[in-house]
């Protein structure tokens, strides 16, 4: 349980940062495509005898580049093609797992997460992924902000928009992998977007949104893991329900606050 808690805290940082971009850019569907196609890589890694996390990492990066290329090349059919990558990745994963002796029962672990899978070695890998995400975002914060805010203007200022866009998707892929082991790939998107969406209700700059989203992610994963341990429930769904409940309260609360202020102004 201690490594699970530590994994939750570490994953929350990378996800708070990238989740904020995903929310303000409204690319939840795109991130979902990356998350689900990760199963293809995990299945292939199991079948070939590699660590599933490495397979997930390779598949996530491949899916990110593929989806990025699709978006730049065939913008008009973006949603259809992302849906295809999403389903094809999962299908590949299911087929590989079906052909791997003795692993079929573990499919649920990849889909919905299993905190018992978190090993100390994976904690170090999670920390390394975190450092990559935070380091790159810190170094190129201006460019990432400009590209996600107004791509055309960034291009006019000589920012290599295509490179930064693909790099950005790769970082989203890394944060998805950070969370997969904790909550599973089906629930990843909720944990990537809900803390950032809640933060978006209360702060007005992207930087603060990232900090608040990371802190909220830490609170949700910790609360979720402790509750699931006490009630002997799977941690992934509990974490997501904690985050979902908080989002609902935050949405209603900020709406009420806005109306009250609007009422006071008139």
């Amino acid at each position: 349980m201690q490594s699970a808690l530590a994994a939750g805290l570490l994953a929350s940082i990378g996800c708070g940062v990238m989740g904020s971009y995903v929310v303000v850019k409204r690319i939840g569907y795109l991130a979902g495509g990356i998350a689900h196609s990760v199963l293809g890589g995990m299945g292939a890694a199991l079948f070939l005898g590699f660590t599933p996390l490495h397979g997930a990492l390779a598949a996530a990066l491949l899916a990110a580049l593929l989806i990025g290329w699709i978006k730049l090349r065939w913008q008009a059919h973006e949603d259809t093609l992302i849906g295809a990558v999403w389903a094809i990745g999962m299908s590949i994963g299911v087929l590989f797992i079906a052909r791997t002796p003795g692993y079929t029962a573990d499919l649920m672990n990849y889909l919905f997460g299993n905190i018992l899978l978190v090993t100390p070695a994976q904690l170090w890998q999670t920390l390394a992924l975190d450092l990559v995400v935070i380091g790159l975002v810190a170094a190129f914060y201006r460019q990432f902000l400009a590209v996600s805010f107004d791509e055309e203007f960034a291009r006019l200022r000589g920012v290599p928009v295509t490179i930064f866009y693909l790099l950005f998707l790769c970082l989203v892929a890394l944060s998805v992998v950070l969370l997969v082991q904790l909550v599973g790939l089906i629930l990843v998107i909720a944990l990537l977007t809900l803390p950032a969406a809640i933060a978006g209700h209360h702060v007005y700059t992207l930087g603060r949104m990232m900090v608040l989203a990371s802190l909220l992610g830490m609170i949700f994963t910790t609360t979720g893991i402790v509750l699931s341990w006490q009630w002997d429930l799977p941690a992934g769904p509990v974490i997501i329900l904690v985050a979902g409940g908080a989002y609902l309260l935050s949405a209603l609360g900020s709406e009420w606050w806005r109306r009250r202020r609007a009422g006071a102004a008139t």
């Binding site: 303000v24 902000l145 400009a146 107004d150 978006g200 007005y204 700059t205 603060r208």
Partner: peptide
């Protein structure tokens, strides 16, 4: 979520 100053600074990219 971006402030006026941050938007204007993008002109310096």
């Amino acid at each position: 979520p971006v402030t006026v100053e941050q938007v204007v600074l993008m002109g310096r990219l």
